[in-house]
């Protein structure tokens, strides 16, 4: 099993996708942070030393999860796209260990993504607060919870990506579904108050609960799951994704 995980990790790190996605995640998070930093003190923006400002910048690292999802999807779909799945299953004809190794490798890559993206985002967020004359009030703002939750969200999203990829298998279709889900469907379900009863139970809603700082962006405070409940829900989605990947992969003909 360790051997298979090592093989899967080598597959990820010997093509370009991982660092392109990491740079994309950093650019995306940097852009989001930059908008808040630039608008600080302007009309409609938060004052840089206010609690609202701190509540808006600390969770920004969590928006790298989309790119973690993409990496998770491609870990599986690239095997079908390039037909390397033939070789993979010739070397390991027992397919369940292969699926589990992919999930473990994806989780480790997600951990790396989360640590780098959330870490750098936190450095920028903290520096901008200090530069604006604010204080790093780590415990009251629940910053450790927000940051650790954001890293965990990256891990969960890469594993969920493995499930999505195994279910859909076609690379472009899987990516389109994943991106539409994260950018279109979930935001609507999580943000629109009438739909939040559904939205807070979705992966995106659960992640929101992990990084929520109670900032009101004008939509009213969101009613989210408690942090422990959100963690369970997210872990549940990851488990379902692995089960789905196993169920769709074990018996199917590879032709």
């Amino acid at each position: 099993m360790t051997a298979l995980v090592r093989s899967e990790l080598r597959k990820v790190f010997t093509t370009r996708l991982w660092w392109i996605m990491l740079l994309a995640a950093l650019a995306w998070v940097g852009l989001s942070l930059g908008l808040i930093i630039v608008s600080a003190g302007m009309e409609g923006g938060f004052a840089a030393d206010s609690a609202e400002y701190a509540g808006a910048v600390w969770p920004m690292g969590a928006s790298g999860t989309l790119f973690a999802l993409v990496v998770g999807i491609v870990v599986v779909t690239s095997e079908y796209q390039h037909r390397t799945v033939n070789t993979t299953f010739l070397v390991s004809p027992r397919r369940l260990p292969v699926v589990l190794a992919k999930a473990v490798a994806a989780a480790l890559v997600g951990l790396l993504f989360g640590a780098v993206v959330v870490g750098l985002s936190a450095v920028v967020a903290g520096a901008s607060i200090l530069a604006g004359g604010g204080e790093l009030n780590l415990v009251d703002n629940q910053v450790p919870r927000v940051l650790l939750g954001s890293v965990a969200a990256h891990v969960a999203y890469t594993v969920i990506g493995v499930g999505v990829g195994a279910l859909i298998r076609h690379q472009v279709a899987a990516l389109v579904v994943g991106i539409l889900w994260v950018f279109m469907l979930e935001p609507i379900l999580v943000v629109v108050p009438q739909l939040q009863d559904v939205g807070r139970w979705l992966p995106g809603g659960a992640v929101s609960a992990l990084y929520d700082t109670g900032v009101d962006y004008g939509m009213g405070a969101m009613e989210l799951l408690p942090v422990w409940g959100a963690s369970m829900v997210l872990a549940g989605y990851a488990a379902v994704a692995i089960a789905l990947a196993a169920a769709t992969t074990l018996r199917r003909d590879v032709a």
Partner: peptide, 14 residues
């Protein structure tokens, strides 16, 4: 059955 973006040596190493 090869990933075009991976080197031959890395393919064998996986």
């Amino acid at each position: 059955n090869l990933h075009p973006g991976r080197s031959g040596r890395n393919h064998l190493r996986t």
